[in-house]
């Protein structure tokens, strides 16, 4: 696994009910999860996020923002409506929040599609392409 310091491993988009509406891997050589595992991962993270914002010693906490591990960093951006964008990167990634902002923008553009229902899983090739260019940092 030869990753540069800026590699983004993957993106998850979680709706406000904790359902996974989009996920994609962008790096080679990752352990593969079944789609059911991804759903569990998303709803677990959603719960942890909710619990974290409750038990935080500081009042008005927004929840989990970053989880850092030895081999990866998990950055979360929560929108005012409760949609969460989760980005998995290398620990040394310099600006995951900027990538997430672009991801948010791409998602917001997709909401303007009249044939897409909000909060539902996104199955669109055009969205895949746009998302890949954003995450790979074109």
């Amino acid at each position: 696994m030869a990753h540069s310091s800026q590699t983004c491993f993957g993106v998850l988009v979680i709706n406000k009910a904790g359902g996974l509406i989009y996920h994609k891997n962008y790096a080679e050589g990752l352990a593969q999860l079944s789609s059911n595992d991804y759903l569990i991962l998303a709803s677990t993270f959603h719960s942890i996020h909710a619990i974290a914002s409750r038990i935080s010693p500081v009042p008005g906490s927004s929840g989990v923002e970053v989880i850092e591990a030895e081999t990866f960093k998990m950055t979360c951006l929560q929108t005012p409506t409760g949609t969460k964008f989760v980005l998995l990167t290398t620990p040394s990634h310099p600006h995951p929040d900027q990538v997430l902002r672009k991801v948010y923008e791409t998602y917001a553009d997709h909401l303007k599609d009249p044939f897409y229902t909000a909060e539902m899983p996104i199955r669109s090739e055009a969205f895949d392409v746009k998302m890949a260019t954003v995450v790979r940092g074109a």
């Binding site: 553009d109 303007k112 599609d113 009249p114 044939f115 897409y116 669109s124 055009a126």
Partner: peptide, 9 residues
């Protein structure tokens, strides 16, 4: 540009 017509239509 913002519209993506589903396959069944």
């Amino acid at each position: 540009r913002g519209v993506e017509v589903p396959k069944e239509m």
